[in-house]
Structure formats: structure tokens, C-alpha cells
Design a protein around this nucleic acid. Structure first.
Length: 267
DNA sequence: GCGACAG
DNA sequence: ATCTTGTCGC
């Protein structure tokens, strides 16, 4: 039984986003953001969740912090989590954000000195049905500068994967080339970025406390491959964590060769 | 009404 | 997100 959630649930979620939306800041708020080469920026974070093929209840949430501009991993946190909310386009935050907030809180408590100065988030920020994607959601809840990095275009406000869009993608010749994602409403919701020699661009949008211009430049400067290193490392580590877990011994609760020393608690 | 729809 | 091997190229 994997049907779409009741409209009432989605409505409640939408209201929750509307409540939080007032907290989004779309301008640069840190000094390093105003420096030509981001002088003063030393740590960039990345978050991601990886799922198990046949299991829609568990996933691995990971948070990594990389040095900047060296892009070496300084901190890693992978943890199995019990996902409850289903995946519904436009409501990704409700599925993934709780575990990411927990990871950020753990980091603040255990290694406060490694707190990232900016976080790259898998998904969109302002480029969203209600102008409040997962990158905004996480940004408001943690008050960390956040940037939305999506691998596919979310079709919203007239934006579509149509022939015009494909033509615009073809126009991105060199890495670093971009074109604005302007909705029917007239506002620029994000930017398509050719982050490397891949014909497939990244879709960058403001999450929290970062301007779109800074977001694009920063993501570009974190790319060794198409996916910016912080997100790529979080992705690699979370799927590796799951791969190992699937090779580990299976625990069977009520059967098995040896189950005799168990002191059964009967009423 | 139907289809499209980040991860 | 995940299912999936080799393979062509720098």
C-alpha cells in the first residue's frame, strides 16, 4: 500500500512551510561571501540521504564537512534512520530534514569547532512550488547558510524540461557557464550551471543567507566532478554505509540455529 | 480532468 | 532514490 498521502496531510505540511517561510534570507550575510575568492571560508558542509532498494522505511543520513579550498574531509557522520514521510515531489523536506537537523545538532555538540560555514543541500531552495524547498527548510531550522543543489529540474512556475530548456542547456559551452531559471512570474528562481564537462547541468538555488550569485560561484568552486565535492562525499559515504550494513549478519528475531539461552519473559 | 513532479 | 557491466575516452 504505497499510495499518495491524504490531501489533508499535504495541506498540513504546506501550512508548516508557510509558517517557516518568513525566516528565509536570500542575501549574503557573512564576510567571506563578499570576498572575491571567499577568503575566510574554511569549512563547507554537505548532506545527503541514501535509501535501500526494497526498504522504504530505512535510510542512511550523512553529514560531511570539507576543508576549503582544499576539499578534504574533516568530519563525517553516517547514521541509519527510520524514515516515516513518503517521497512526494515538493515535500522532500518533510522526509529528509528531521535527520539532517539532528546531524547538525550532533556536530554542534560533539565538534563545535568543525561547524560548516555553509551547507550544500541535495535538492532545491527557492526553486520550489511554494518557494521553500529542502535547502530553505534546513537553513531556517539550523540557521546555517544553505545552498540548494538539484540534479534535475523541478518543474515549477512554468519551468519545464522542454525543447527550449534543452536548447538552453546546449548553449552552455564551457564549465562555469550558466543561464537563469526564470519562472512565468518573472522572478529568477535559480540558475542552471555547467559544473564540469558534463552535458547535464546542476540547478542551483538560494537556500538561506546566501545570494544566488554567491551560491553559483561557491558550488562551481567545490566541483572536481559534476556533483560538488561536499554532496558527493556525503553521497558516497552514505551508500557505502548501507552497502556494508547489507553484508553484515542478518538478525532473525524468532528463529535460528541457536536460540536456547534466551530467558523468555512470559506472563 | 490528466500529466508532470527535487530525492 | 534504486535497479546495473562493460566500455569508450582523456
Amino acid at each position: 500500500m504505497t499510495g499518495p498521502p491524504p490531501a489533508a496531510i499535504l495541506s498540513r505540511w504546506a501550512r508548516e512551510q508557510a509558517r517557516l517561510k518568513g525566516g528565509v534570507v536570500r542575501e549574503d550575510t557573512e564576510e567571506w561571501q563578499k570576498e572575491p575568492s571567499f577568503a575566510g571560508l574554511q569549512r563547507v558542509g554537505g548532506v545527503d540521504l541514501s535509501y535501500i532498494k526494497g526498504d522504504d522505511s530505512r535510510a542512511c543520513a550523512s553529514l560531511v564537512v570539507l576543508s576549503y579550498p582544499g576539499l578534504e574531509v574533516l568530519y563525517e557522520d553516517c547514521r541509519m534512520v527510520a524514515v516515516s514521510a513518503p517521497y512526494v515531489a515538493g515535500f522532500l523536506a518533510f522526509r529528509e530534514v528531521p535527520f539532517l537537523v539532528e546531524a547538525v545538532q550532533r556536530l554542534q555538540q560533539e565538534e563545535p569547532g568543525l561547524k560548516p560555514q555553509v551547507l550544500l543541500v541535495d535538492g532545491n531552495g527557492l526553486l520550489h512550488h511554494r518557494g521553500f524547498g529542502v535547502a530553505c527548510h534546513l537553513g531556517v531550522l539550523t540557521d546555517l547558510p544553505c545552498i540548494g543543489v538539484a540534479k534535475n529540474l523541478l518543474q515549477v512556475d512554468g519551468l519545464a524540461r522542454d525543447e527550449l530548456h534543452r536548447e538552453q542547456i546546449r548553449s552552455l559551452q564551457r564549465e562555469g557557464d550558466t543561464f537563469p531559471l526564470t519562472g512565468t512570474s518573472g522572478s529568477v528562481l535559480g540558475m542552471a550551471l555547467r559544473s564540469c564537462n558534463s552535458s547535464k547541468p546542476l540547478y542551483i538555488s538560494v537556500g538561506h543567507r546566501v545570494s544566488l550569485e554567491t551560491a553559483v560561484r561557491l558550488v562551481q568552486s567545490c566541483c572536481r566532478y559534476r556533483i560538488p565535492e561536499p554532496i558527493r562525499q556525503a553521497d558516497i559515504r552514505s551508500r557505502e554505509y548501507i552497502r556494508k550494513q547489507m553484508c553484515s549478519p542478518v538478525k532473525v528475531p524468532s528463529s535460528g540455529p541457536e536460540r536456547e539461552e534466551k530467558a523468555e519473559v512470559d506472563d
